[in-house]
């Protein structure tokens, strides 16, 4: 053993950990079965969607924005609500933030029709429909299951982060959500959307979507770094931004370099009534110590009003988190 590296020694020891193979296989099987199948044919949901459309059609008479949204495609809301308005597709559809599209490309017998798109804050959503698929093409793996290969977006600063599908008689409805990776987010964006495979069919379905949104309202804040009460941790609010997607507080959290590691993060931000204003609809907000972070909020903070910011941190040498609260009054 004298001539073996530390890495090899540790690797060999770890590889001797007993493995309950039957339980591991069962866990993997359960994990696969638990995955959602939004693209599977669900006849009962199609029937429910029809009922939803009939029930909400009356709204169009009262709200011209809703009427405009419904003009785009009758199935959009029902499709979005299959997944509980994840990624805000239905909200933007109803409020009119999403704009109707009518772009179509046919290749190798399959047609991709883009129906709607939104650009709000740092997210882009695109919805469309695929038609012309045969039963054999739709029944890959013996069931309705869509595989949609989308090519690189090149220099456009976006990243495809999620997608959902619903089967139809001749193809699929789909929606794609992108995150805009540029900061600050541009008010205008051209999204190249290149589909290279639809199920087993290779082809070329290419679009260039020109998107724009009103410039966000950004208020630069005048605070210096605020001591959080956690030893060595300073919180500096930088800007308050309001856009079509909502509001966001950009801030920097710095940590004393004498510490073992930077582990402070914002766990709650409450108004005077005790309501937590952090918007967690898009999942966990991850804090990056030393860098500028963005905290999505349900509403913009108002200068002059007091808010309670709660930080969670691990003290040096500590084994678990502590909490400390700071009263924040924004200064424009």
């Amino acid at each position: 053993m004298a001539d073996r590296s530390n890495r090899q020694v540790m690797h060999d020891r770890f590889d001797q950990i007993p493995v309950p193979r039957a339980a591991v296989a069962a866990a993997i099987t359960r994990g696969v079965k638990a995955a959602p199948l939004p693209h599977r044919l669900r006849k009962q949901l199609l029937a429910a969607a029809a009922a939803l459309m009939l029930g909400t059609a009356g709204l169009a008479a009262f709200n011209p924005v809703v009427g405009q949204a419904f003009d785009n495609a009758a199935w959009l809301s029902s499709f979005y609500l299959l997944h509980g308005d994840r990624d805000h597709f239905n909200t933007f559809h109803v409020t009119g933030v999403a704009k109707g599209l009518n772009q179509t490309v046919t290749s190798h017998g399959l047609t991709v029709h883009l129906t709607e798109a939104y650009y709000a804050g740092a997210t882009v959503g695109v919805t469309g429909e695929i038609t012309g698929m045969t039963a054999a093409q739709r029944h890959m793996n013996g069931e309705d299951e869509l595989s949609l290969a989308v090519g690189d977006t090149g220099a456009t600063p976006v990243s495809l982060v999620s997608s959902d599908f619903q089967a139809t008689k001749t193809g699929y409805r789909f929606r794609l959500r992108y995150d805009v990776t540029a900061a600050p987010t541009p008010s205008a964006l051209t999204l190249p959307l290149h589909v290279t495979h639809i199920g087993p069919v290779a082809g070329r379905w290419s679009f260039n979507l020109k998107l724009h949104q009103p410039a966000p309202v950004v208020t630069t804040l005048g605070q210096q770094g605020l001591a959080t009460g956690a030893a060595g941790v300073t919180f500096t609010p930088l800007t308050m931004t309001t856009d079509a997607h909502g509001a966001a507080l950009r801030y920097r959290m710095t940590v004393d370099r004498q510490r073992d590691e930077p582990v402070a993060e914002i766990v709650a931000l409450k108004d005077a009534a005790g309501h937590d204003l952090i918007d967690r609809r898009d999942g966990l907000v991850v804090h990056d110590a030393g860098a500028v972070n963005t905290l999505p909020l349900k509403q913009a903070l108002v200068s002059g009003q007091a808010y309670t910011v709660t930080f969670g941190y691990t003290p040096v040498g500590g084994q678990h988190d502590e909490r400390v609260a700071l009263t924040l009054v924004l200064v424009p």
Partner: peptide, 30 residues
């Protein structure tokens, strides 16, 4: 499976949590 289980086990320290991690990660991967 052996490698993946050991990876999770080393992190969480017990069989039950390791299996649950593996199951959840599988769902996310799908």
């Amino acid at each position: 499976g052996d490698y993946l289980y050991r990876t999770a086990y080393l992190y969480v320290g017990n069989e039950q949590d390791a299996l649950e991690c593996l199951q959840e990660a599988t769902t996310q991967a799908v």
